[in-house]
Deep mutational scan, measured.
Amino acid sequence: KKRTSIEVSVKGALESHFLKCPKPSAQEITSLADSLQLEKEVVRVWFCNRRQKEKR
């Protein structure tokens, strides 16, 4: 599967949402994915990776 490159504006939106809620529910992920026109899986993986980055 190809890597999904996420645009800067979209990254900003994800980042601000992450600061409010680092662990969104499935429903939040779905609505966020719909509003940003991304697949749910892409958003879910982005949050997983972002939480891991926070640990480092």
Rank of each mutant, 00 (worst) to 15 (best):
K1M: 07
K1D: 14
K1E: 08
K1F: 09
K1V: 11
K2H: 06
K2M: 11
R3S: 13
R3G: 14
R3P: 09
R3L: 13
T4A: 10
T4L: 08
T4F: 15
T4S: 12
S5Q: 14
S5Y: 08
S5I: 15
S5A: 12
I6F: 04
I6G: 09
I6K: 15
I6P: 07
I6D: 11
E7R: 12
E7S: 15
E7Q: 09
V8L: 13
V8T: 13
V8F: 14
S9W: 13
S9I: 08
S9A: 12
S9L: 09
S9M: 12
S9V: 09
V10L: 09
V10M: 09
V10H: 10
K11D: 15
K11F: 09
K11R: 09
K11M: 11
G12Q: 11
G12D: 12
G12V: 15
G12H: 12
G12T: 15
G12P: 09
G12S: 15
G12A: 15
G12F: 10
A13C: 11
A13H: 08
A13I: 08
A13N: 07
A13Y: 09
A13Q: 13
L14C: 02
L14Q: 02
L14H: 03
L14K: 01
E15Y: 03
E15V: 02
E15G: 01
E15D: 03
E15R: 00
S16C: 07
S16P: 04
S16R: 11
S16A: 15
S16E: 12
S16T: 12
S16F: 06
S16L: 08
S16Q: 14
H17W: 12
H17A: 15
H17R: 04
H17E: 09
H17N: 07
F18W: 06
F18Q: 00
F18P: 00
L19D: 09
K20S: 07
K20H: 04
K20D: 04
K20Y: 05
K20R: 07
K20V: 06
K20I: 07
K20T: 08
C21E: 11
C21Q: 12
P22L: 01
P22H: 08
P22F: 00
K23G: 05
K23H: 11
K23V: 11
K23F: 08
K23D: 14
K23P: 01
K23A: 09
K23I: 10
P24K: 01
P24R: 01
P24W: 02
P24F: 00
S25D: 09
S25E: 04
S25M: 04
S25P: 03
S25T: 13
A26N: 10
A26Y: 07
A26T: 12
A26H: 11
A26S: 09
Q27S: 10
Q27H: 14
Q27R: 12
Q27C: 10
Q27L: 08
Q27Y: 06
E28C: 06
E28Q: 05
E28D: 06
I29M: 10
I29K: 00
I29Q: 02
T30W: 06
T30K: 13
T30S: 13
S31H: 11
S31K: 14
S31L: 13
L32R: 01
L32H: 02
L32T: 00
L32I: 08
L32E: 01
A33G: 02
A33Q: 00
D34I: 15
D34V: 11
D34W: 15
D34F: 13
D34A: 14
S35Q: 13
S35Y: 10
S35R: 14
S35K: 15
S35F: 07
S35M: 10
L36E: 01
L36G: 01
L36Q: 00
L36I: 03
Q37G: 13
Q37E: 08
Q37W: 05
Q37P: 01
Q37R: 09
L38H: 02
L38I: 08
L38Y: 02
L38K: 01
L38P: 00
L38D: 00
E39D: 14
E39Q: 15
E39T: 08
K40C: 09
K40S: 12
K40Y: 10
K40D: 05
K40T: 09
K40L: 09
K40P: 12
E41M: 02
E41N: 11
E41C: 04
E41T: 06
E41D: 10
E41R: 05
E41P: 03
E41V: 03
E41G: 05
V42E: 13
V42S: 08
V42M: 06
V42L: 12
V42P: 01
V43H: 01
V43S: 00
V43G: 01
V43P: 01
V43L: 05
V43K: 01
V43C: 04
V43F: 02
R44N: 09
R44F: 04
R44P: 02
R44A: 12
R44T: 10
R44Q: 11
R44M: 07
V45F: 08
V45T: 12
V45S: 15
W46G: 01
W46Y: 03
W46P: 00
W46N: 01
W46I: 01
F47E: 03
F47G: 03
F47N: 00
F47S: 01
F47I: 03
F47V: 02
F47H: 03
F47P: 00
C48Y: 14
C48Q: 15
C48D: 11
C48L: 11
C48G: 09
C48H: 10
C48I: 12
C48P: 00
C48S: 12
N49A: 07
N49E: 14
N49T: 07
N49V: 10
R50Q: 08
R50A: 05
R50C: 01
R51V: 07
Q52I: 09
Q52G: 10
Q52K: 12
Q52T: 13
Q52R: 10
K53L: 08
K53V: 04
K53Y: 04
K53C: 13
E54F: 03
E54H: 05
E54D: 08
E54R: 04
E54K: 04
K55R: 07
K55N: 11
K55M: 11
K55P: 05
R56C: 14
R56A: 06
R56T: 14
